[in-house]
Simulated assay, not measured.
Amino acid sequence: MSATQTFKIASIPADGVGKEVVSAGQRVLDALAENSGGKFAFEWTEFPWGCGYHAETGKMMADDGLETLKNFDAIYFGAVGWENVPDHISLWGLRLNITQNFDQWANIRPVKFLPGVQSPLRKADHTELDWVVVRENSEGEYAGLGGRNLSGRGPGNEVALQTALFTEKGCERILRFAFDLARTRTVKKVSSVTKSNAQQYGMVLWDETFKRVALEYPDVETESVLVDAMSAKFILRPEDLSVVVASNLNADILSDLGSALAGSLGLAASANLNPERRFPSMFEPVHGSAPDIAGKGISNPIGAIASAALMLDHFGLHEEARRIEAAIEQTTAAGHLTRDIGGNANTDEVTETIVQALTRSLAAL
């Protein structure tokens, strides 16, 4: 029986543990499709791009890679980075090459505290915590503007300029995205994060745009917080958070802090969205390539599997996304944990347990 709808997914495992966790996520999604009664299916095409590809070709991806990726419904990404390629080259050559050219301007990074996973945050033991970091993903500090000059003057005289780009349109669209997301949550609140006391141009523009946009959302509570104060708030008053929106760099750092507080970066999911759907969006865990454990079969697949759930949400398969998240929670609650979160299960064992929990829930329909 052919599926009613087939989603074409470009798989880019890339480097290190990316290969292991993308395989795990694909396994979970395929199990979901097999038990959907023909409602949907996934058609996978894997691309070998990454640092290994760079060693062979001198490039992080094929010259026509972006043109090829345009034909897919979504991109499922692993992790990028290896010792044979400088990090700034590997990142800009593959991941940022995709996010920038496909205008994936909204990056969503949920912070979820899972049952059975011990958080270093004592408050998590007795307080319901659940927030999401919304990251401006196209400009800000990662716009790639600047340069290195004056090296000809001799050692010690070179100058490097790194320019952060803030446009009113860029600020407005990510802030509206955050407000619209807040309206879908139990706690309707947006916390805007800048460092406008020290960065008096771009981030003051952000602050002013935030105040203007907020007037159109009178049903959503707001606050504007400096990034250093928000770092402290993540630890001391996390129960006050619902949607946290920040620039490219600040949200990158804050979301990693949130995931660490939840127990491990291995749990962290993300979605790089082109909300207008002019280009495919990309879904990836945020833990990196982890060279120290790559190839050992002990990486945590939960971040990648939770990213697959975000991809289902993007496809409009919200019930199926919640089923994957429930299967993850059942797995951690039962003590099936990888080493980074205090257990001794390997990647395959955790993945199989999630698949079994998912299959049971579908069989009960």
Rank of each mutant, 00 (worst) to 15 (best):
L181I: 12
E141D: 11
V193P: 03
P218T: 06
V244P: 08
M203H: 12
S231K: 02
S138N: 11
P155S: 11
N157M: 13
L129G: 04
R148W: 02
R148F: 04
L161D: 03
Y217S: 09
G140L: 05
G170K: 02
L181D: 12
V245W: 05
R176V: 04
V213E: 07
L205G: 10
G152Y: 04
E221I: 07
L215Y: 08
F177R: 11
A214Y: 10
N149I: 15
L150P: 02
D207M: 01
N248I: 06
Y217K: 04
F177V: 10
A229L: 12
N248V: 01
A246V: 03
M203R: 14
F210N: 07
D228H: 05
H126M: 10
S247F: 09
L145P: 02
N157Y: 13
S151T: 10
M203L: 15
L226I: 14
V133A: 05
T222D: 11
F210E: 04
E158R: 10
G202P: 01
Q162K: 14
D207H: 07
S224C: 13
K188S: 12
Q162Y: 13
A182M: 03
V187M: 13
E172Q: 12
G147C: 12
D207E: 12
V213I: 15
L165E: 00
I174G: 07
G156Y: 08
